[in-house]
Design a protein around this nucleic acid. Structure first.
Lengths: 121, 121
DNA sequence: CGTGTATATACGCCGCTGTGTATATTCGAG
DNA sequence: CTCGAATATACACAGCGGCGTATATACACG
């Protein structure tokens, strides 16, 4: 299981951009090709294409060939995982430490920090 | 109004870092000073302090003076707003376009569909 | 096949971010 | 008031990310 550390990074990073969130919204309501998407933004086609690529690497959208176009559609799985990550944090904050301890261990501090809170000194 | 465009950027960007998410978790379970937090990570104190600053600017944590220490605690409001943003996206994907249309208008395409571009840093 | 459209890649530019070390500031303790 | 701990800021520097323009690939259609 383990939410796969780096994937969360990619997901949130992909979400931390206005244009990309807007792309997600547009693709959530209807199916759109990349070029169709690009028409909606004041930047170059390549820029939009790269935004889509970032979303795709994060697993937030999938592309499907349709004729000579690539249809972009949102993949709510990654979205749900991101939400679950936030839910975990909120649950932690509410004091559900006991039940969430296992989840906490899934993503320890990078490098050396260990999730051993309470035992130190 | 509502979600305040750039704030979402900051929130997700703050969440898109392993160390910062870990800080959030630690501060969700117990109150910790900045120096206490810094001890848990293999990086310099200044680096951790800046991570906390990023979280603070995003509204994800608050600091409170206690003696000569600054106690960091998670502020679930921003967390809830981020989650709400994801919920909106999921709802959109499920076809609730009608009811979500108003929410959609909150964050239009950057650059051309909206005159106000000055809110971000 | 050849041609045009759709998408991807290459390369460069610039600003921001994460990190470090070093220094400044704040504030309780005595 | 002085001292030291806790925190913040300053400066530097490598790396990445977003953007553009230009070029390469893929693919439908004659």
């Amino acid at each position: 299981m383990v939410v796969d550390d780096g994937a969360v990074d990619q997901t949130f990073h992909a979400l931390a951009d206005r244009t990309r969130r807007d792309i997600l919204r547009r693709c959530a309501t209807g199916e759109l090709s990349v070029s169709r998407l690009a028409e909606a933004y004041p930047m170059s086609f390549a820029a939009v294409q790269k935004h889509v690529a970032v979303l795709e690497r994060a697993g937030l959208v999938t592309k499907e060939r349709r004729g000579r176009e690539q249809i972009v559609r949102t993949a709510p799985d990654a979205l749900a995982r991101a939400r679950q990550s936030l839910d975990e944090l909120e649950a932690l904050w509410r004091g559900r430490v006991d039940r969430m301890a296992a989840l906490l261990a899934e993503e320890p501090a990078p490098g050396q920090a260990e999730p051993r809170r309470g035992t130190e000194r």
